[in-house]
Amino acid sequence: MTKTERQKMQAGEWYCCLDSELSALRHQARVAVHQHNTAPPDPAEILSPPLAALFAGHGENCLIEAPFHCAYGLNISLGSSVYLNAGCTILDTAPVTIGDGTMLGPNVQIYCAQHHKDRALRAQGLEIAYPVTLGSDVWIGGGAIILPGVTIGDGAIVGAGAVVTRSVAAGQTVAGNPARPRNGWSGQ
């Protein structure tokens, strides 16, 4: 049996992102994101209903500030008390898991897709997706970029503007481009 492009994406294989089923799923996400981003502020709302319905899962007391953007939403799982500041983007072509108590500063970007290096295949829409995992009580500074396949361990800190190309150990602090360990750095 031939796999669909969505099945290939979910299996971590090369797939064509120009597929009609994937386009429909991205449209569904854009609708939910638009509803979230244009909703009037309501202090009683923690996680907006459109995003709560879209995501794979979420714990209690999660807050996502507008504006927010995601590619599919259905690959995003949030623990409890997760906070995403304004301008965060999650391109969730693979599972993105964010643990309890994790905080993302403004304009943090999480990317799962890697486009093909062969330009002819890239022009055909071929890409592959790698999961991104943020442990519990992680702090990601504003403007940081998390690349495909990265895992950030519990309690780690990523400095503002960092580009995280490799996994980060639990409790470790990294900063810079590319992000490197910073011993004794307070993150300020």
Results as ranks from 00 to 15, higher is better:
P95M: 06
L104D: 05
E5H: 15
P178L: 03
R26G: 01
A32S: 04
N177H: 10
G142K: 11
A44S: 03
G184K: 00
F55V: 02
P49E: 00
L134V: 07
I145C: 05
A156Y: 09
S80H: 07
G99A: 08
V164W: 06
C17G: 14
H58W: 02
A94G: 12
T165C: 10
P67W: 07
A71L: 10
A144Q: 04
D118T: 13
L63A: 01
A71H: 07
L63D: 01
E60F: 00
R122F: 04
L147A: 10
R6N: 13
R182A: 02
R30K: 14
I128D: 01
Q28E: 15
G59L: 02
V96F: 11
S23D: 11
K8I: 13
Q114T: 14
M103H: 13
P43M: 02
E45Q: 11
L51H: 01
I140Q: 08
P40M: 00
T93Q: 11
L147I: 09
L126V: 09
G135S: 07
Q124T: 07
A179Y: 02
G159V: 14
L47M: 02
G125D: 04
D92S: 09
I152A: 15
L18C: 14
N61T: 03
G161A: 06
D19P: 15
Q172T: 09
E127A: 11
V108H: 03
C16I: 15
G12T: 08
P49G: 03
Q188W: 02
W185Q: 04
S77Y: 02
L121A: 09
G176P: 00
D19A: 14
G155W: 04
A32C: 07
N37W: 09
T97S: 06
D154S: 08
I90T: 01
G99R: 09
R166F: 09
G79S: 12
V108I: 06
T165E: 05
Y15C: 15
G57V: 01
G161H: 10
E5V: 15
C112A: 05
Q35L: 11
D19E: 13
G79F: 14
Q172R: 03
L147Q: 12
V82S: 10
Y111L: 09
Y111P: 03
N183H: 03
T38D: 00
C16D: 15
P95H: 04
A144F: 05
A162F: 14
G99L: 13
A120Q: 04
V168W: 10
D154G: 06
G161N: 08
I90W: 03
V164E: 07
M1Y: 13
D92T: 10
V31K: 12
N85T: 08
L147R: 14
I98N: 07
K8N: 13
A94L: 12
Q35A: 11
S23Q: 10
V132D: 05
A32D: 04
Q10F: 15
N107Q: 11
S77H: 05
G141I: 07
A24D: 14
L121R: 12
E21G: 08
A32T: 00
I90E: 01
Q172Y: 03
L147V: 10
A160N: 12
V150A: 03
D19C: 15
G101I: 10
P49N: 02
S80D: 12
A32P: 04
Q7S: 11
M103L: 15
A53N: 05
G135A: 10
Q28G: 08
K8E: 12
A66Q: 01
R166A: 11
